[in-house]
Design a binder for these strands. Structure first.
Length: 273
DNA sequence: CAACCGACCTGTTCGC
DNA sequence: TGCGAACAGGTCGGTT
């Protein structure tokens, strides 16, 4: 499931391929993917537009278009972006296709149809109430400690709350908490300054390592790079999806529990309540 | 503010 | 073997 490292990787890879290209034509195969404007308007407004910079904010991908507009894309659960030649095979889950001026196309496929895109001059309205970027240098250990202070909720649901921090999902929240040695059910406002600093360090390290490996491609193979290559961080996951495996730090068996309506994976030995 | 629910979706896995 | 139920989890809106 695409989270910050996967979207960051996409932004970087697409920058090298798409910047300077123009969209000759857009095709909407499933209208539900296009949140705004109406698909006909979306198609008309995209024709002939040149792509400038490509950015990421949280789990959103932002494609800057000449003329002060942005094409926002959120992959949600199963979205995939691929840059491919005209001879690429069909994909039954194709939702939107952008034909480029060099003969290639950018394909958005999404089996579960949760992904969304929007063409807008005001991206803030679509990004919603997003928290700070976890890798922003302005997010110091002290500032994170301050953010935790007023929160009575549990760490795991808090880390995946996009209004608290932008970009963490289920996989990386579990990995971060293991690295920090903190229990997913720990109340946020009970962390000592040292623990908050540990959490801060774990967030940075896990995300930076995952980006360096170009993200996590699980066995389901949904997330891949624009050229179809998989991300390589799955082999470095310690707890996520590894119930019953032994903790590399203490040897105890990784457990899986239900936290905030979804699965949390952690080491019961070195992540104490 | 916190916790929980259903809705949105479909491909995969599980239990009988 | 085959079938339906449960599950996977990002986000939103609603309720308690």
């Amino acid at each position: 499931m695409p989270e910050l490292p996967e979207v960051e990787t996409l932004a970087r890879e697409l920058n090298g391929v798409l910047v300077g290209r123009s969209i000759v034509r857009a095709e909407v195969c499933w209208p539900g993917t296009v949140a705004a404007p109406d698909p006909e308007v979306f198609i008309r407004r995209l024709a002939g537009r040149r792509i400038g910079e490509i950015r990421r904010r949280g789990k959103w991908l932002l494609l800057g278009l000449e003329g002060e507009e942005w094409l926002l894309i959120h992959l949600r659960m199963s979205g995939r972006l691929a840059v491919e030649g005209a001879d690429a095979p069909e994909d039954t889950h194709t939702r939107v296709v952008f034909y480029l001026d060099d003969g290639q196309r950018l394909r958005f496929s999404d089996p579960r149809k949760f992904g969304r895109m929007a063409l807008t001059a005001r991206p803030e309205e679509w990004l919603g109430d997003l928290g700070p970027e976890p890798l922003d240098p302005a997010l110091t250990p002290e500032r994170l400690a301050g953010m935790l202070r007023g929160r009575r909720g549990r760490l795991k649901p808090l880390l995946t709350d996009q209004r608290f921090l932008a970009g963490l999902g289920n996989i990386y929240a579990d990995e971060v908490l293991w690295r920090a040695g903190l229990h997913p059910l720990r109340r946020a406002d009970t962390l000592t300054p040292e623990e908050a600093a540990r959490l801060h360090g774990a967030i940075r390290e896990v995300l930076e390592r995952a980006i360096a490996r170009r993200g996590t491609t699980l066995a389901d193979q949904r997330y891949v790079l624009p050229d179809g290559r998989p991300g390589e961080f799955a082999a470095h996951l310690v707890v996520y999806g590894r119930e019953g495996a032994s903790c590399p730090r203490c040897g105890a068996s990784i457990v899986r529990a239900r936290v905030g309506g979804r699965s949390a994976h952690f080491c019961p030995q070195c992540q104490r309540g």
